[in-house]
Design a protein around this nucleic acid. Structure first.
Lengths: 210, 210
DNA sequence: CGAACTTTTGAACCCCTTCAACATCAGTGG
DNA sequence: CCACTGATGTTGAAGGGGTTCAAAAGTTCG
């Protein structure tokens, strides 16, 4: 049960649904941030580019999540579809006008706070963890976050490419690949395909995640 | 003019002032988060420790800033005084009860949002910048943030130690020291003491900060 | 002055990156 | 179905940026 359920419900009732193809931009960094977006199907990423092309991924979002609230006047990140996904956009000002009756402010705060918490956890990973620990933490999070969502028996799945993982974890694609190979050699995880895996030793994974 | 002025004013009127000595803990990570803290003098840092002792600093705070709101039920970071500082603590629930009349919710949101913005900027630094770029960004931020605050002519000052800088930037103390030496050799900054410096070439510093 | 701490500097090492080649997968059309 | 093609992922070897370890220099405070 995500913390932003209330917000997600509002967006679902009010928003205009739009479909974005894989890799398409939902909104752009430095753009005016007057819309917020409820993800109702598929998955998305938020990214920020440095002037020379280096890329940092802020977070990954799934059905039920709210994107676009993470900023002030302008978006600090761009958002792009990881695969085909449908998004419902609502003008923030009209939402606010409507929310006088209900706990709109608190819903906004809940989403923002959740965002902050995730970003702070991310900060710790980028600042003080080794490549192996980063990948282990990442896989652990993925495996934990949607324990119910996985099709029964198939195990957790990765909505993003290796490059996306690398840009999220502050590593190169090669290092990510090597660490996954390493974790498999240790019999801690097992990949059934590029995008699907299976945790065989939760205790060891938790330990390696530091 | 900080975004949390409204909140700071409220805290100043209501809070019980407490003084903390250098290095003292203001609140502790994983502790119940029912108080929020208005910093009215001095400077503080928020830190999070990994089990093996590695430390990540979340941010640095100065007079006028609000600390302790960055979490949900429990603090995700500890807070400690960088030097002697006075803090006014207010119980969040009592503040909320009182705020029915004024824009308390929006003040809370403003503080949280500002926190999120800073954390997101920090994320980019830790994820994708080199040691030199990290130190350059850091010095640039310090020099920019309190342009008026510096005693006239003396230039910006660092409230934190090299170790604090290192733990904020995800580096070692030696690397931070080397990068500062390097920037001085390039005549981009000039340190008059360990804690005081002076930007001699803003353009070059901006460029190096990436 | 002397002791404890912080900062700087030096040298060797290592983790991650870089560059390159190979492997695998998905989509297309023959 | 299979060959072809481009995108994605893996593996290997060499190089570099940052760390580690050690020692010197500077600072603070008794």
């Amino acid at each position: 049960m995500p913390a932003n359920l209330g917000m997600a419900v509002v967006l679902k009732r009010l928003g205009v649904p739009t479909t974005y193809a894989k890799g398409t931009e939902i909104f752009c960094q430095d753009q005016q941030a007057d819309l917020i977006y409820g993800l109702t199907a598929g998955a998305a990423r938020t990214t920020r580019m440095l002037s020379d092309g280096r890329r940092q991924i802020g977070d990954f979002y799934y059905s039920g999540d709210v994107i676009g609230l993470e900023t002030c006047a302008q978006h600090r990140f761009s958002a792009e579809a990881l695969d085909i996904c449908t998004v419902r956009a609502v003008r923030l000002s009209s939402l606010r006008a409507l929310g006088v009756d209900g706990g709109f402010e608190s819903a906004v705060w809940a989403v923002t706070r959740r965002e902050l918490e995730r970003t702070q956890a991310h900060l710790l990973v980028l600042g003080r963890k080794s490549a192996c620990e980063r990948v282990a933490s990442f896989l652990l999070n993925i495996a934990n976050q949607g324990l119910e969502q996985h099709e029964h028996g198939s195990g957790p799945s990765l909505a993003m490419s290796r490059q996306d993982m690398a840009d999220y974890l502050g590593l190169t694609i090669e290092t990510v690949s090597r660490m996954i190979t390493h974790l498999q050699a240790l019999k801690i995880v097992e990949f059934t395909s590029f995008r699907h895996f299976h945790v065989t030793r939760w205790d060891a994974l938790l330990l390696l995640a530091a």
